[in-house]
Design a binder for these strands. Structure first.
Length: 462
DNA sequence: ATAACAGGACTGTTGATTGT
DNA sequence: ACAATCAACAGTCCTGTTAT
């Protein structure tokens, strides 16, 4: 078949510099293609599986990829998964490799993207297109390219029977944009490089699953490092909590740009005044404000490597630590403002606020380690006091409704509750045994063993 | 049945202009 | 100086059509 792809050189003014693409668009280079057992060869791309840079089994030596993560299908990878489970990724694979981005759930299996071989991808099956979507978008994000949905085919029942995903640099800029005569502005920088990478899945009724029919690798452009890959619109998502936060602020007539600035501020504050000054903390504890539990903040925490904890209203002591720190800050602000030195912001943000709450420095001595020691001791005190199925009392927490009649003479404990889950950190999930079956997650220190008294036994018997 | 191109409707991005 | 607006431009995603 004649290749109908637009030849870029046929369109647009020849004298115009369309911006650097680093790619020879007339390049006739052959790209490796991994075609699934059900797939046919495609015509527009020359298939050359025996290319020097590719092994006979379809795995890739990655000779041409500068990026540590990209197209890394060497034999070495196959063994890696077996050697260790947790921490090999970051050290071995360069920057394109955050653990949470490396794992995708397909069916009931956890798949490590960097451990996938070409054959592994070719043999993949998905329960639905959503699963395939999820896999390939995560795959692209991990490897450093942007995925675009391409062809879709449905049967007479409107069920999807084929779905194709491509690299977003697939094809070339459309003819209609390049050949227009009424152009008023200069061309934008070229973004398409005729990249051949793609994944295609077909529905197999006999299996009732979507199987990979075509998997092509070998990008003809530089891949994007993980530090910026998330910035592309494809991977930029606003979480529901972020949306709620924005809506809330907008309802108070705060301008959009200020809202975004505020949301950025929280992260820049942590980066500039905690991370740079004190090192990467092990954990940072905040309250449950939407700004702290939003996707952006969670992503920032994951990327930086600290654990984000939220203190609940149950844990008055923990909030107390924050409040004490706040109190110190307020005092200092007052002092500085009376001095009228006009630099209170600097004193607040830069110098006077230390690590608030559990912001102890990683592997430090002094305050950090003392805090850690205390925490470990406390943990050991409350760890595994109860087992699943145990009946327990729960302390009457300050925010719980008290008996209107009894008032301050209400009981301190309520229950019984049944332990339905035990967490490693001394927390428990408990279910109320009364009619309303409320479920709480609560620290073990607020529980005590439930012993049914004789009076209760009597009542239940009657 | 599968593969791939063409083209259209719609959406998102960009950057210049206008408003505060 | 900063913020808001808007038109031009380009991308996305889908369907129709044709070839294999």
């Amino acid at each position: 078949m004649e290749n109908k792809n637009n030849d870029f050189t046929d369109f647009g003014p020849a004298e115009y510099d369309y911006g650097s693409t680093d790619v020879d668009l007339n390049d006739d280079k052959t790209y490796p293609v991994i075609v699934g057992s059900q797939g046919k060869s495609t015509e527009n791309v020359e298939h050359n599986v025996d290319d020097d840079s590719y092994n006979n089994d379809g795995s890739h030596d990655n000779a041409s990829d500068d990026d540590g993560c990209s197209g890394d299908y060497s034999e070495d990878d196959k063994g890696e998964d077996d050697e260790s489970e947790g921490d090999e990724g970051k050290d071995d694979k360069g920057d394109n490799n955050l653990d949470e981005d490396d794992v995708v759930v397909v069916g009931e299996e956890m798949v490590r993207i960097n451990s996938l071989t070409a054959d592994g991808i070719r043999a993949m099956e998905f329960a639905g297109v959503v699963e395939a979507d999820d896999f390939y978008f995560k795959y692209g994000k991990c490897k450093g390219f942007y995925v675009r949905k391409s062809d879709i085919r449905c049967n007479v029942n409107d069920e999807i029977v084929m779905r194709q995903y491509v690299c977003n640099k697939q094809g070339l800029r459309e003819k209609k944009h390049l050949s227009r005569s009424d152009r008023q502005r200069d061309h934008r920088r070229l973004t398409r490089t005729k990249c051949p990478s793609r994944l295609r899945v077909h529905y197999r009724p006999k299996k009732g699953r979507y199987v990979v029919s075509i998997s092509e690798e070998g990008h003809n452009h530089e891949l994007t490092p993980s530090s910026v890959v998330h910035l592309h619109p494809v991977y930029r998502k606003i979480s529901e909590t972020d949306k709620a936060q924005i809506d809330g602020l907008q309802s108070h007539e705060i301008r959009t740009c200020h809202i975004m600035g505020y949301m950025e501020f929280v992260m820049s504050f942590i980066q500039n005044h905690i991370l740079y000054r004190f090192g990467i903390p092990e954990t940072i504890t905040t309250d449950e404000g939407l700004i702290f539990i939003g996707q952006k903040m969670v992503g920032f925490a994951n990327q930086t490597g600290f654990k984000l904890l939220t203190s609940t209203p149950y844990y008055a002591e923990e909030n107390g630590q924050l409040e004490v720190a706040n109190k110190i800050v307020i005092t200092l602000i007052k002092k500085h403002s009376t001095k009228a030195n006009g630099n209170s912001k600097r004193s607040i943000l830069g110098y006077d606020v230390g690590c608030v709450g559990r912001c102890g420095r990683r592997k430090t001595d002094g305050i950090g380690s003392a805090f850690e020691e205390k925490r470990t001791r406390r943990k050991s005190l409350y760890k595994n006091l109860f087992n699943i199925g145990d009946s327990v009392w729960k302390v009457h927490l300050p925010m719980d409704k008290i008996d209107r009649v009894l008032g301050k003479w209400s009981t301190n404990w309520e229950g019984p509750f049944k332990v339905i889950q035990v967490f490693l950190n001394g927390a428990y999930e408990i279910e109320e045994l009364a009619s309303n079956n409320r479920i709480f997650r609560i620290n073990g220190k607020f529980l005590k063993k439930y012993m049914s008294i004789l009076q209760e036994v009597k009542i239940t018997q009657e």
